[in-house]
Write a protein that binds this DNA or RNA. Structure first.
Length: 477
RNA sequence: GGGCCCGUAGCUCAGCUCGGUAGAGCAUCUGGCUUUUAACCAGGUGGUCGUGGGUUCGAUUCCCACUGGGCCCGCCA
């Protein structure tokens, strides 16, 4: 094929001096200078002796202007054998075309990778959602704003890391494969560890109990970027595999973390967009601190007359009927949660701390100072989505044991999402855990807000997809 | 789990109402053209119409099931 005519279609390396964006933004300084760029040919306009190729690299696109009579023989050969979709290296002079387009006037063209496939068409591009997710490489080629979305995701992740690092925290890694799962209410994925006698292991639903062991051990400030797994259906705001950062800080309480979140989100918006206001799905979300505080038990009582803090399971059954919640398992935990969704969630478009939960919803949280029925916990909502969950951590081993026993009862009653009793953790906390604040900060959902995406799949590079029917394995070339 | 919509060329789509085994643009290939921006002009290649079954002389079209995707609801604090 190409090799016979002396062109290597898959060479080893190429020296790139500039990206498209550098040249466009720095044109006045670069005009007349020699540069070399590399990228994928996205469009090609051939007029005989002159050819225009739009080269796309990570930063964007720039036009290469190619006059046949200024090329050496090898470059000419490359040109005549290249097509849309090939990756090319262009060495040439920064200039403007007659129509004023900033271009690289080519002196040398190098084939960097020959494509065997045709790209989607240049106007409509690639729209089919299924193909976009199953073939993310094609999506990234055709829809460069997707790359921008993931750049924003990376910026947010590193922003959170920096914020925690600057508080003096250390980043740690704890097991993803766990003997026992805990720290949240969810169905786990299971797997088998063959060399440990085919032991059943769980993919973590949270890393909370491990990080707390580190606090007990004296680490004082620890966080982990945690991929968690919950064996549940996906929808536009839930993915079974998701990312959160959990952070624990000794000698703090949830009040300190509300301040931290205000600072973290507002500084990110300002740094990234130059504004505290962000457009999200038709709403303008204002990250100017302080964020609103919604004492939701009181607010709900005002709206409905129901005091969920003193609700019993019997009350819950009656409320499930009178409020037409239609829950399959109308215990007080699920009823309280459902009432929030029904009456209050709509009011959380702007950043809102939803705080002080009934104790029965919080098996790992300290009770509120001055109100034994409530726990010191907040959830931060933005754009009607929960983006962080934090509490003054329960450190009393005797009370902790009692809460585990309660959970175990729920579990026996058929709540398969209630976590199992963790004797090993109780053993650890009996050594004494300092007062501690803990928080889980979502990475996926804030990214949705900062990139104005409706679906969580748009901020996850390779969302899980169902198996395709087996017959289609032709792998045509 | 329930409801609605969708699957036709590599991509974006038309055709289906009212059955007669398929069409456009882009891409690709050939030829022409030395400043284009969706370049243009001429010609060519490209499809077991998601899968299986049913009705029919005949199904991309009508019916059923399955499968994959999207949206909404339920569930997932």
């Amino acid at each position: 094929m190409l090799r016979k005519s002396g062109i290597e279609p898959y060479p080893y390396a190429y020296n790139v001096s500039h990206h498209a964006k550098d040249i466009k933004e720095g044109f006045s300084a670069l005009e007349g200078k020699e540069v070399s760029i590399a990228g994928r040919a996205m469009q090609m306009r051939q007029m005989g002796g002159i050819t225009f190729i739009d080269i796309q690299d990570r930063s964007g696109r720039i036009q290469a202007l190619i006059r046949n009579n200024e090329l050496d023989d090898k470059s000419l050969l490359v040109l005549t054998n290249s097509s849309i979709g090939d990756t090319l290296g262009i060495r040439g002079i920064v200039m403007k075309s007659k129509r004023g387009e900033i271009s690289v006037g080519a002196k040398e063209i190098t084939m960097l990778s020959k494509t065997l496939r045709t790209l989607p068409n240049k106007w409509q591009g690639l729209k089919d959602t299924e193909t976009r997710y199953r073939s993310r490489h094609l999506d990234l080629i055709m829809n460069q704003e997707v790359l921008r979305t993931f750049e924003t995701r990376a910026k947010f992740l590193s922003h959170v890391r920096n914020a925690l690092d600057s508080r003096g925290a250390i980043e740690v890694e704890t097991p993803i494969l766990q003997d026992l799962y805990g720290g949240a209410n969810a169905k786990p994925f299971t797997t088998t560890y063959h060399t440990l006698g085919d032991k059943i292991m769980y993919l973590r639903i949270s890393d909370e109990l491990y990080l707390k062991r580190l606090i007990i051990g004296g680490a004082e400030r620890v966080y982990e970027v945690s991929k968690d797994f919950r064996n549940e259906d996906a929808d536009t705001t839930h993915n079974p595999e998701f990312t959160q950062i959990e952070y624990y800080e000794a000698y703090s309480d949830y009040e300190a973390f509300m301040k931290m979140m205000e600072e973290m989100l507002s500084s990110f918006a300002l740094k990234t967009f130059g504004s505290l206001k962000v457009e999200y799905r038709g709403d303008t979300i204002d990250f100017t601190p302080p964020f609103r505080r919604m004492y939701w038990v009181d607010e709900l009582k005002g709206m409905t007359g129901i005091d969920i803090s003193s609700m019993t399971d019997e009350d819950a059954v009656a409320i499930n009927d009178s409020e037409k919640l239609g829950l399959k398992r109308p215990d007080r935990y699920h009823v309280a949660d459902s009432l929030f969704d029904k009456y209050l969630k709509e009011k959380t478009v702007q950043p809102t701390f939803v705080l002080d939960f009934p104790t029965y919803m919080c098996p790992l949280t300290k009770v509120k100072r001055g109100n034994q029925k409530l726990a010191e916990r907040f959830e931060l909502y933005v754009g009607r989505m929960e983006v962080a969950n934090s509490y003054s951590e329960l450190t009393d081993p005797i009370y902790q044991r009692k809460m585990f026993e309660e959970q175990e009862k729920e579990r026996k009653k058929g709540d398969e999402e209630a976590p199992p009793f963790d004797e090993d953790f109780i053993d650890a906390i009996e050594y004494g855990m300092p007062p501690t604040a803990g928080i889980g900060i979502s990475i996926d959902r804030p990214t949705m807000i900062f990139t104005n995406q409706v679906s969580i799949k748009e901020v996850i590079l390779f969302p899980p997809m169902k198996k395709l029917p087996p017959e289609d394995e032709s792998g045509n070339r």
